[in-house]
């Protein structure tokens, strides 16, 4: 396939409509590093996305948020700074979890049906007279044993109720174990993805690294910042920072000659855990004097107000 033919595949590729052989051919071509086709594909994908977003929006936002919030509730531990919901939302969450359906309770244990059926069963082959006599006798016997049967029945019923209560308790504990495992799985996946992000920035051909040194409030803290201008990305990896206090966040700063401190993003630290967080790369075209981390109000601030925990002077060169 020549270049013109490959170019003709770009639109279909952007729309996800290529047949397998064409897709393989185009992928091979892009892997060879054709920057022109790569750029055109990116531009066509944006046009295709605009096409999708031109549809009349469906009024779905609130319902979607409820779905997402239910998943967040399952995946975020209550104490995690990540679940920074405001108080009314926490209330909403509790109300929702109270609405979760509980295990259906049988109106009558199944054993009772058999018991009733046994009582209903009557012999069919006996001559009716004998049957009448037998029935009268049976009635007497039944009357005699009725009290005992009722007591026995009550005992079985209590046992069953006890068993149901035990099973419900077990189910509850299994379900909380399952949500704890899910929580853990989502947190691990997110942590893994952050690490992959750090890795990809470190692997960039123009990757830069910088070590941040501890200051008074946390003498054991340290951090590494990796950044890449071509990837328009920066990532901080920090350890030894005290856990973020409630209502606060760590904020990263680039201090430039032109604008002084420029906010680069907020992140949170947990006890004994290393933090990896995406931050904004330094503003391009400005001279960087220093990088720093301060403790600020949870939403972040435009100019630093809190104590500085980490900093790295940037050597002039």
């Amino acid at each position: 396939m020549d270049h013109a033919e490959l170019e003709d595949l770009l639109a279909l590729a952007a729309l996800g409509r290529l047949d397998a052989p064409d897709e393989a051919a185009l992928e091979a071509h892009l892997r060879e590093g054709c920057a022109q086709c790569e750029a055109e594909l990116r531009a066509l994908r944006e046009a295709a996305a605009a096409l999708a977003l031109s549809l009349e929006p469906a009024p779905a936002e609130q319902r979607l948020w409820l779905k997402l919030k239910a998943r967040l509730d399952q995946s975020l531990p209550q104490a995690s700074p990540a679940g920074r919901f405001s108080a009314p939302e926490v209330g909403e969450r509790q109300a929702q979890s109270a609405e979760r359906p509980t295990a259906p309770r049988a109106s009558r244990p199944a054993g009772h049906e058999r018991y009733d059926a046994a009582l209903r069963r009557t012999p069919r082959v006996w001559p009716w007279r004998v049957a009448t006599g037998m029935a009268a006798a049976a009635a007497l016997v039944l009357a005699f044993f009725a009290g005992g049967a009722a007591r026995e029945f009550g005992r079985i019923d209590r046992q069953r109720r006890l068993r149901i209560a035990q099973l419900e308790k077990q189910a509850l504990s299994l379900s909380s174990e399952r949500s704890a495992a899910r929580t853990q799985a989502v947190r691990l996946e997110q942590a893994l993805n952050r690490r992959a992000r750090l890795q990809s920035v470190l692997m960039a051909s123009d990757a830069h690294m910088m070590h941040l040194k501890p200051l008074g409030p946390a003498p054991g803290a340290r951090a590494l910042v990796a950044m890449s201008a071509t990837r328009r990305s920066a990532v901080i990896q920090a350890a030894g920072l005290p856990p973020t206090p409630a209502g606060k966040a760590y904020e990263m700063w680039w201090i430039t000659k032109q604008h002084g401190p420029v906010p680069a993003g907020i992140f949170h630290a947990e006890t004994g855990r290393e933090v990896i967080a995406s931050i904004d790369p330094p503003p391009s075209g400005e001279r960087l004097l220093m990088a720093a981390v301060t403790l600020e109000p949870a939403a972040g601030v435009a100019k630093p107000t809190g104590r500085m925990y980490l900093k790295a002077p940037i050597p002039a060169n």
Partner: peptide, 22 residues
């Protein structure tokens, strides 16, 4: 990516309805 649930909510407010239509 840094675990801010408010950002997810904002992204939903921005795109949820259009993506649902799609």
């Amino acid at each position: 990516a840094n675990g801010d649930a408010h950002a997810l909510k904002a992204l939903n407010a921005r795109y949820g309805a259009s993506l649902s239509a799609l």
